[in-house]
Design a protein around this nucleic acid. Structure first.
Lengths: 258, 258
DNA sequence: CTAATAGTGTCTATGAGACAGTATATA
DNA sequence: TATATACTGTCTCATAGACACTATTAG
């Protein structure tokens, strides 16, 4: 897609071209299990996977049959891979209005036995409710949520094991270093709900400690208390609600505490 | 690259495929201008660009002729886009052994008038010496280093303006949030040399302040003083040298100071 | 000597971290 | 009343940030 120093004109037809261009989406949700009344929820980070059919519609054995895979599909020339990911997420799960983030390209030769197929990987953060709605409206035998801790033993198609590992690394980092946790929470949330989200990807002492975290949340520049707004959904004691606000976060490892 | 819930078998040939798959590389260097003896260098972040020839080898007018472009080229089916970037960087500039980082995919329809061409963008951090060696050994009329501040007025080919903007954003972030600055420095460096590198992408008060930064560097967990090793290259007073060491950096916006 | 860079001494304010204690509502 | 969660009081210690000061060497 360029000239080089010698000024050659590249004729596109002279080059071998890929056999396919796809988007895959790692759809994450945090399940919020209410263990009892007036208590913070137990939260767990889960990933949605689809089970590949044993046979295709003509009855022939399917490739990578019966393995679990990320949802996704082919990109058309009229759209970007990112747009295709949004479209496919909606087609396959009925979920719209979701934040997606591109995090990688997978193009290792041989990664797909059907040819030279390049995949763009994205992750999405979906509120649990949207996923369970969809699952209920479906036969859904082949769509399942897996805890990120139980993915190791699962048979995964293609190179999706690697893609998933890197998706988890990216979402963990984003949850801690950006305000992505916002996507998993209602607009107004308590300190213990935010804490539960963060604890799905870290065991940091300062986040685990209730008192420390309850104090800290008040001084974070990107979170503000919702004045006079309280809830009893996490405790008998009416609890302060907070919301995310827009605030530039600029940190550097050279100025932070260590 | 998947089955969907209905179990369709995708026949690759049923889909339109891209017309090309390329890698582009934003080659950054920090020029270190020694203004006078016994003083820290003036440093500036620069980007290497190549001027597209007016005509191709057969004498036909070249596409996007005479504009400036990132080095790069087509990916072959035997390699990943990342490997292609390394190969092309070496072919076009003779530079090897360089750290590359993939930072984006550019696949907007119409971005390249020659067809549906997908580009993977990478950035590289190259010590100034390696670049100037190469430039001297070449006629090099069409290879130039531009300060990132003067790129706005430059005529750039394709969507390289956007790619370059995003490359600068990525490298700025990486310099401040990872130990990428290591790539721009000799193995042993003074606090003022590290400071000069960081100041090419930030104006943070705590980094700009000499005393503050000289104190801070001693407590950074990923930098250690090289015992007894001093230099006079930045001042008449022999100055302590430091080196980067491997240390895990785990920060979160919820635990840092603000 | 001067000039320039590289530090150190010291004070203040802030906040992290730990621990104990208090507050409020439900059952 | 007991219990669980949400908070506050208070202490100690580390360090960021500011300012003044000292140290070393070439020329």
């Amino acid at each position: 897609m360029k000239s080089n120093k010698e000024g050659n004109h590249y004729d596109v037809s002279r080059y071998r071209t890929p056999d396919g261009y796809t988007s895959d989406i790692a759809v994450f949700t945090i399940t919020s299990e209410v263990t009892k009344a007036y208590a913070p929820p137990k939260m767990e980070l889960k990933l949605m996977l689809i089970k590949r059919a044993a046979h295709d519609t003509e009855g022939n054995p399917n490739i990578e049959a019966s393995k679990w895979a990320l949802p996704g599909g082919f990109v058309t020339p009229e759209e970007t891979a990112f747009e295709a990911a949004i479209r496919e997420l909606e087609e396959e799960t009925g979920i719209g209005g979701i934040q997606l983030k591109h995090f990688g390209v997978y193009d290792r030769p041989g990664r797909d036995p059907r040819g030279w197929i390049i995949s763009n990987a994205h992750y999405a953060i979906v509120p649990e409710q949207k996923l369970s709605d969809r699952k209920a409206s479906d036969d859904a035998a082949d769509v399942e949520l897996f805890s990120v801790r139980e993915l190791d033993e699962l048979p995964l198609a293609f190179d999706h094991k690697q893609i998933i590992e890197e998706a988890i690394a990216h979402i963990s980092r984003d949850l801690l270093q950006t305000t992505a946790a916002e996507q998993f929470l209602p607009e107004l949330f308590t300190y213990s709900e935010l804490q539960a989200v963060l604890l799905t990807v870290t065991d940091d002492k300062a986040i685990r400690n209730d008192q420390a975290f309850a104090r800290k949340i008040k001084s974070l520049p990107f979170i503000e208390a919702a004045k006079g707004q309280k809830t009893q959904r996490t405790s008998k004691l009416p609890t302060q609600l907070y919301r995310f606000i827009d605030a530039e976060i600029k940190q550097s490892i050279y100025t932070a505490r260590h």
